[in-house]
């Protein structure tokens, strides 16, 4: 406990480097980083749950809620980037708050599968919504920045910088939260709930809070994706494979730090896009093998590259 915690400083420096790099990187890279960071936000939420031993196979529920909140608001003419992200986040928070009363009763695989069932029910509703284009989805016009309309390169950059800012804020907030008493409950609950209850803490309430935070981050991630891509549809936002990808990145990244989800997300996107480019016919094989190797070589995730092995006390 004597050594100073440098996570926040690392986070700030990393975000600053990335933000500045945005001005020099080629467009496609900025775009891909924006998406990777947006998905990193979702993964950051899963990290909070996963530290408690809970893994949601249906977190796309909130990613999709955030995205569709933005899409629907766009249909009504709302385009401000801050308002849209806030809306996506709040929509997810409300949904998670309501569902939380039910889902916090579940653990392990049942938590995972019930989450998945919920997300697939939303998927079904969207597929049935012909007004919203069913599986074809619909397009969203680009956001405005405090009333300013950007185009082309500056739009891509604007989206990116807003995302960077949000990543910094989310990382900062989550780190502070995990350092708080509530946050420290995580692994206690994971190891033994009954002990935690004996300390006079309501495990369900602790999990409920975590669930809502995780949903809020997913909602924000979904909102950004929707705005940046300019199109939403249930297949790329709510289907179970989307949730599966988030889980995959969570484990791949490791839970050691709030920076890990973003690193994991970027690595995942890079591996996939280059597998797409160089082996269009067998990219799944390349992706699967790479991920398998990473899991086997780095059991604690990519982040363990950055932490020294520490002998157990």
């Amino acid at each position: 406990m004597i050594e100073k915690d440098k996570t926040l400083r690392t986070l700030a420096i990393a975000v600053a480097i990335f933000a500045v790099a945005g001005f020099f990187l080629p467009q496609w890279a900025v775009f891909m980083l924006t998406l990777a960071l947006a998905k990193g936000l979702v993964v950051l939420g899963l990290l909070i749950l996963w530290r408690t031993g809970l893994l949601s196979f249906g977190h796309a529920l909130f990613y999709c809620t955030g995205g569709y909140a933005v899409g629907l608001a766009g249909l009504w003419g709302l385009t401000d980037v801050v308002a849209l992200i806030a809306l996506g986040t709040v929509a997810s928070i409300l949904l998670a708050f309501a569902l939380g009363f039910l889902i916090t009763r579940y653990r392990e695989i049942y938590f995972a599968m019930l989450s998945m069932a919920f997300s697939m029910i939303l998927y079904g509703v969207l597929v049935k919504s012909e007004v919203l284009g069913s599986t074809d989805g619909f397009n969203i016009s680009p956001p405005t920045f405090l009333g300013v309309k950007l185009e082309g390169e500056s739009l891509t950059l604007g989206n990116y910088l807003v995302t960077c800012l949000l990543v910094w804020a989310a990382g900062w907030g989550v780190h502070r939260y995990l350092q708080s008493t509530m946050g420290h409950m995580s692994i206690g609950i994971r190891d033994n709930e009954i002990r935690v209850e004996y300390l006079g803490v309501s495990v369900r309430r602790v999990i409920h809070v975590k669930y809502v935070i995780a949903a809020a981050l997913a909602g924000a991630g979904g909102a950004i994706s929707a705005m940046v891509v300019g199109h939403i549809d249930p297949d790329s936002m709510a289907y179970w494979t989307v949730s599966g990808e988030f889980v995959f990145v969570t484990i791949l990244a490791g839970t050691g730090s709030v920076v890990a989800p973003f690193l994991g997300s970027i690595v995942f996107e890079l591996v996939r896009t280059y597998a797409f480019q160089y082996t269009p016919y067998t990219w799944q094989l390349i992706l699967g093998s790479t991920l398998l190797l990473l899991i086997l070589i780095l059991p604690d995730g990519l982040w363990s590259l950055f932490t020294r092995r520490k002998a157990r006390v």
Binding site: M1, E3, D5, H184, L305, F306, T307
Partner: peptide, 21 residues
């Protein structure tokens, strides 16, 4: 064991790792 993310345990970044980052 109840303090998983205590600064000393998991968030520590050695000088080497920082250079790597």
């Amino acid at each position: 064991t109840m303090h998983p993310l205590s600064s000393a345990e998991t968030s520590k970044i050695s000088t080497l790792a920082r250079i790597a980052a």
